[in-house]
């Protein structure tokens, strides 16, 4: 096939993570192409979130390799993985409660070495300009995600939906090569869902590649060309939603027998 010639942005081989007797991820293999929006679905406990944790470096894998943008990143610390261009959002919004909304957004912009004690004093003009530019970007992201009026509020005062928007806005500001979105629309009302959907599309338009973990198959179908189905810690099938509906393994494990969700 022609696409096999293009080097994948992300290549996961034999990824494994066991917690005691629980095989959370057990020999997971898949690859993601540059510029792709790929869905990651599967029943609860299939290991989707663990894969996100392993890819982002917050949890170290027991075995396997993760090749991202030509370099092996498995077992590297999370801040280095972020620096190499892989950012993730959390299934449960993890805002920094006692930082203002604007500060939450500013943290998402890579500091490029300006967050040192020395830079707090007589910082070179270059780094002050960088801070100003970061601030402008953060404020316009706040505007885009309806957080501008709340920019000076503590993040803990936001509603659940607003926290999801903040979570997503942080990813957008990080401008990653690969964004791992762990159920970004969970518990979000339809208006905000549309907003986040638009956000995902503009991530793609900006050149990012996206892995979307999502339970709402309607969304997955409308957004993703390719979908990975995980069952019991491994990849059970890969294909378009239409193909997967015909796949009996997927039907049994996830879609509920022959009736289509």
């Amino acid at each position: 096939m022609a696409e096999a010639q293009v080097p994948a942005l992300l290549e996961v081989r034999g990824l494994r993570k066991h917690y005691g007797g629980v095989k959370a991820v057990d020999g997971c293999e898949f690859s993601v192409l540059r510029g792709e929006l790929i869905g990651l679905i599967g029943p609860n406990g299939a290991g989707k979130s663990t894969v996100i944790e392993l890819l982002s470096g917050l949890v170290k894998p027991d075995a396997g390799t993760v090749t991202f943008d030509g370099r092996e990143i498995q077992g590297r610390p999370p801040h280095k993985i972020f620096a190499s261009g892989l950012a993730r959002c959390f299934q449960l919004a993890k805002e920094w409660p006692l930082l203002s909304v604007l500060e939450n957004l500013l943290i998402a912009i890579p500091p490029d070495g300006s967050d040192t004690i020395r830079h707090a004093f007589g910082s070179p003009r270059r780094s002050r300009a960088a801070e100003r530019a970061a601030r402008e970007r953060a404020l316009s992201a706040a505007e885009q995600y309806r957080l501008y009026p709340l920019r000076n509020e503590y993040a803990y005062t936001l509603s659940g939906g607003q926290k999801r928007l903040l979570e997503f806005a942080r990813i957008a500001l990080a401008q990653p090569k690969l964004a791992l979105l762990d159920e970004p629309m969970a518990g979000v009302n339809p208006v905000l869902q549309t907003q986040i959907e638009g956000g995902i599309r503009s991530l793609l338009a900006g050149g990012s590649t996206v892995i979307l973990v999502e339970h709402n198959l309607g969304f997955v179908e409308s957004l993703c060309d390719r979908v990975i189905v995980m069952v019991a810690g491994r990849v059970a099938a890969v294909g378009s939603m239409a193909e997967l509906r015909e796949n009996t393994v997927v039907q049994d494990a996830y879609l509920g027998g022959t009736s289509v969700a």
Binding site: L58, H79, F82, P97, L99, I107, P111, D115, H119, A120
Partner: peptide
């Protein structure tokens, strides 16, 4: 108030999220 202080407070508020956004804890 500097970027350093901000990063530090983010680490205090939620260290995993700070690490996921590139902070060396």
């Amino acid at each position: 108030r500097s970027p350093f202080g901000r990063s530090l407070r983010a680490v205090r508020e939620n260290d995993l999220a700070a690490a996921a956004f590139g902070r060396n804890l």
